[in-house]
Design a protein around this nucleic acid. Structure first.
Lengths: 139, 139
DNA sequence: TATGCTATTGTAAAAAGTTGCAATAAGGAA
DNA sequence: TTCCTTATTGCAACTTTTTACAATAGCATA
């Protein structure tokens, strides 16, 4: 748990507290490098802080995502995965082989502007996942 | 259950069977007019066919969505809702008041083409939900 | 360093969603 | 109409996710 990343100041800046539970959860996400389901976060983070409980994991993930420290993404059928909100991006998933490609947020910006002007809404986030067949699976 | 809609031929055209369970589920979705969560579908459809069970509802919704009879959409935090696949559209949700606006699929087509050429994937569906503040809640 | 406010957690129980497998019944063919 | 194939369902057990509320512990302040 001697992790180089220190999220405490960022959390406090928004009135959130740093707890060993959150440290373990962020640590798990940081070192996995990718997306983790709540269950995976629970399993990994428990190695850092063994008395961690499921409700805490679910609540923390949802709350930190709401506060923009994490991104929640959908992977097929309604499953949700989380990752650190380092760089905003989306996913393109092959529903044959499961292969995933990251889609930068930039190409969506134009769409954002269009929607804002046509609806009057002020957009600030989105859950976007695209599905299709990757080049290998198209044959 | 004397519903004007008759999905049986469409189902059979794809090798699917029409059962009283499916009839009740489609009926519920048809008459609700909007999005329903699996639980809501279960409750409503049970009024038409009381011996309906949860596993059947979940499996049927997922399967019919896969076969394009239904659309699965995400409404915040990982919850999933289903609706009849009449017209392909997405949602823009105000996370203050919960107000929802339908977003046509057309404006996303350009993005689809861009992604296809940059990734080599052949897109065929997406889970897209935008979040923001509606004009009323921006003050 | 000690104090107090309140954000955060654990507990326990319920609700929601999933799985494997044997039994049932749609609906095409005889 | 009857038979046959196999898609679909129910059952039962299990895993995942959520909720309410009391107890705990960050951390700002003095």
């Amino acid at each position: 748990m001697t992790c180089s990343m220190n999220y405490a100041p960022q959390l406090r800046a928004q009135g959130l507290r740093m707890t060993p539970q959150r440290k373990a959860i962020l640590h798990a996400l940081h070192h996995s490098g990718g997306h983790l389901s709540p269950t995976q976060v629970y399993e990994l983070a428990r190695k850092e802080f063994s008395s961690l409980t499921e409700p805490t994991v679910y609540r923390t993930l949802e709350y930190l995502a709401e506060k923009k420290f994490l991104l929640a993404a959908h992977v097929g059928n309604g499953k949700i995965v989380y990752e650190l909100a380092q760089n905003q991006h989306h996913h393109l998933i092959c529903h044959q082989c499961g292969g995933t490609v990251q889609v930068e947020h930039a190409p969506l910006e134009l769409l954002y502007r269009q929607l804002e002007s046509s609806t009057g809404y002020k957009l600030d986030s989105s859950h976007v996942t695209f599905f299709g067949l990757c080049s290998d699976c198209q044959s």
